[in-house]
Design a protein around this nucleic acid. Sequence first.
DNA 1: TTTCATGTAACTTTATCTATTACATGAAAT
DNA 2: ATTTCATGTAATAGATAAAGTTACATGAAA
Lengths: 148, 148
Amino acid sequence: MKSSSRLSAVLHALMHMAAHRGPMTSEVLAQCMSTHPVVVRRTMSGLREAGLVTSTKGHNGGWSIACDMEKTTIRDIHEALGEPAVYAIANSNDAPQCLLEQAVNAALDDAMKEAEALLLARFQSLTLAQIAGDFTERLRQRHRHKDH
Amino acid sequence: MKSSSRLSAVLHALMHMAAHRGPMTSEVLAQCMSTHPVVVRRTMSGLREAGLVTSTKGHNGGWSIACDMEKTTIRDIHEALGEPAVYAIANSNDAPQCLLEQAVNAALDDAMKEAEALLLARFQSLTLAQIAGDFTERLRQRHRHKDH
DNA sequence: TTTCATGTAACTTTATCTATTACATGAAAT
DNA sequence: ATTTCATGTAATAGATAAAGTTACATGAAA
């Protein structure tokens, strides 16, 4: 399976944008995320449509955060990305005739839906501000280390 | 994302094997699962190594269940398949230097590990016998429909 | 000894995510 | 005005992983 890292990448970009005064260009963000500027634009376009970020052209242009870090959750970001599939596991057939396969699918779906609901609930309870707070905590830890 | 359907396919095969007296060939199983016999062998080899099924060559050869349906869980099957990745979502970088990215990864990992633990716990609480039981229930339902 | 069926390596196909190129649009600086 | 900077987006290429296929070896039963 090939897994997507868009959610992780976008969150990383948002953290940099939050820690930076003024817009950041796709090129700079792409360097942070070791990817291509066009990939940044493509990925961020979903967030722009959702009103979570803004982009401006020309000199001093680039990307800026346009949402409340305290209120915006990981789930909001996930939705803005188009709610990509969470699981790498899927049924081999979505509407099987075979009753045996139906029973298998029902059992798997049950378990997976429950786990997905938990994951989305956790995403919903986690704000950008909390992640930023964890960052400052890590910064403190690092400085404490250096001092001794 | 391209999701793997091996778990679903293998469970479907096991249900057919349980409902069938005597070994089933890879070719017949492949037809049930609309796939290729070699894919069946490849996929089932993990289960054979785990002792969950046996395979015999030659005339009247094929695959047979070798485990207790009451005691074998979906999680056992998942493990026998090599515990393939559950998520289609991953961090873009597993050991980032950037503290911002570390904070993002930690937040995502937390939520995802918890959801994965729940999923695996559900898998562990679900036996092959339960799925087979659900099948007979569905069969009953279908017959009831026909009778009215 | 022939036939059937698995075991497995090697290769091909297919699907999907990511990267890149190319060009259009528009805003600021000169 | 025109140049420069930066995004917007379509189109194409590359990379990767799962599934499909081919080919041939192994071994058991008829």
